[in-house]
Design a protein around this nucleic acid. Structure first.
Lengths: 360, 360
DNA sequence: CGACCGTGCAGAAACGTGCCTGTCAACAAG
DNA sequence: CTTGTTGACAGGCACGTTTCTGCACGGTCG
């Protein structure tokens, strides 16, 4: 009795015991009634629900997690440069991808936790995750191997390098995208295509660059490229300038990173080059600003929304042990959004409209 | 003994019991040794740590949360339009703010959970939060009142409207910022300043608009503005067009939302207006693209990184019951980044350099 | 020499759920 | 009347920690 009083006078939230006592039933009945399990008459169910509502009862997430082993939390791990969680160059991509992932997770009753890969270990072990999404994991990522060792499903955005044992992955076909794009530029009249690339060794940069080199070899063009540390927003402008200052100046450029479009446009203005007449321009970006620049710039979209959605679906399937017919290795097609900057002879005077927000 | 065997042969992770058994000490000793509590000789501490490492022991976050009542998780709630977690117009702001908030939280041992305000209730109650950051809560936000009722600290980004009982808040002085900005335009020679604003009733839009109206009244100018639903990216371009098509066409425009800069620039081109000669332009944005547009556009920065950091610091202080000397109502100054678009007579030929990434 | 005290550790009670195992009544079939 | 069956609930254990309480022990002091 003194126990009951202690509980009853407890500060804060009401527990399942209080509900059981107030409803005149047992704890089991309350649990079953609220979770829709067991075999109870509807009258009891309604009664218990009503009492729970009246007391403002909210089940303890921690206790439920401890008991069931499922927390309903998914980690969203993003590679970091320096001490900031995500890098400048991937802003729009990450934002869109995270947005889609959050939506998809929420629709299936999960929430997303942002966890930088380089974060202190104590934070990682302090949150109970059901699984993790890893964006572009590095070669032998210690975080990934540790998670896999703990038996947690890990789905990566980006084909895992080496023998990284992820549960599933989703990626674009970066090589095909670059080859397509270079063909597009060549068809528009480009004779010497330059590349603005990064000095980092992540998969995206590596695959795109080798695709460029092999394309050059195939068509017999000397490669013309500049590499810079992609995490430094100022270095991009400098590298764009360097590329256009070369004696073997290209008449078309593809920039691998989001801000390269404005960087290259500014550099072209500085050298008095007209776009697209003197210089064709394409960059990889998710930003809508390139629809309204002067001139509008052709972009390669990696479809981050589809990737974010796919990654989360795969992860939750793995968590819940559902054997869907979804392949565990998915390749999402890219989309080349052709605008003025890559058309030497604009066949129409109309400008492609801004992308609809309700795209898939 | 059969118990011990059952435990020993358990699949998956090792528990604190296993560590205690392997180290030949009690559970208490293990807990104290790993958490740096109690009074133990260093030899015992080292021994226990070593055994724990050898077994790959990771304490269960759920059990710890259940016992201590602290989860180390902070909610990041963002208002939603439609079914997507965050809106288009706030992309750069939200991304920067979330990035800073994540960093600040991580530095103090917390992780962030993204939780849209309109999400289903079951997701909210399924995650154990120590507190929540709310971005721009609406008037009588039901989520906020519910959280406060549960005794959780809530810190809002944006001055809470009405009598919303938040623990603390951080905001810009939007009125002062707009007044300053309008003075800046007037000093640059603007005679009739127009406004591109939103139809929503959130605090930011409301305060900025009333500041504009009161400034107009003070200087005796007729207000010239167009409002549009800010969550629709296409509507912005249309509204920008409408504003410049008016018979009382303004010779300077301030756009409240991030994409308004490119929208207005495109509209000006359509009407053959030169910037800044025929039209002065300023918009509120965190995007770096406006440093490289033609011409570069003056922007008002709300300093989302400082806001994100401040919000998290206040929240964690409240969670941990620390009585700092930090004020619970903080006003962060805005920054007007003056570029060519708002200077009728460019005094220099140099263009302001892109902002350094290492700004505070 | 007994009372006292600080040290080093162990036992066990929570934390709040979910679920497995019973119990008890009612009822039908034999 | 006995026995099997089924519905409607109660009891109690387990999840893996943290932490309060307390025991044994050796040394010190009155």
């Amino acid at each position: 009795m003194s126990r009951a009083q202690t509980r009853g006078s407890r500060q804060g939230r009401a527990g399942i015991r209080d509900v059981a006592a107030a409803a005149g039933v047992s704890i089991t009945t309350v649990s079953d009634a609220l979770n829709g399990k067991g075999r109870l008459p509807d009258a009891t169910r309604r009664h218990v629900r009503e009492v729970a509502d009246r007391l403002g009862y909210r089940p303890s997430a921690a206790a439920r997690t401890l008991r069931t082993g499922k927390s309903g939390l998914i980690g969203l791990t993003v590679t970091t440069y320096g001490d900031e969680p995500f890098t400048f160059t991937e802003f729009a991509y990450f934002a869109e991808m995270a947005r889609a992932a959050t939506s998809a997770a929420l629709a299936r009753g999960y929430a997303l936790v942002i966890l930088p890969a380089t974060s202190r270990h104590d934070v990682w072990s302090n949150v109970a995750l059901d699984g993790t999404v890893v964006i572009d994991p590095s070669d032998h990522d210690p975080v990934v191997t540790e998670l896999v060792r703990q038996g947690l499903p890990v789905v990566s955005d980006g084909r895992p390098a080496g023998t990284l044992p992820v549960t599933a992955w989703v990626d674009n076909d970066h090589e095909a995208a670059v080859l397509d794009l270079l063909d597009h530029l060549a068809a528009a009249g480009a004779r010497r295509i330059g590349l603005l690339t990064g000095t980092t060794t992540d998969t995206y940069t590596r695959l795109s660059t080798t695709a460029y080199l092999s394309w050059c070899e195939r068509v017999g063009q000397d490669p013309v490229y500049e590499a810079y540390p992609a995490h430094d927003p100022c270095a991009g402008a400098v590298a764009a300038d360097r590329l256009l200052a070369r004696p073997d100046r290209p008449d078309a450029v593809y920039g691998l990173f989001d801000p390269n479009g404005t960087d290259l446009l500014a550099a072209a203005r500085r050298y008095g080059l007209r776009v697209p007449d003197d210089l064709l321009l394409v960059c990889c970006s998710e930003s809508t600003v390139y629809a309204a620049t002067e001139p509008p710039i052709t972009t390669l979209s990696l479809k981050p929304r589809r990737i974010g959605t796919a990654v989360v679906q795969l992860l939750i399937d793995a968590i819940e042990g559902i054997d869907t017919d979804r392949p565990v290795e998915q390749v999402i097609p890219t989309e080349l959004i052709v605008r003025t900057s890559s058309q030497r002879r604009p066949p129409r005077t109309t400008v492609s409209p801004p992308r609809s927000p309700s795209q898939e």
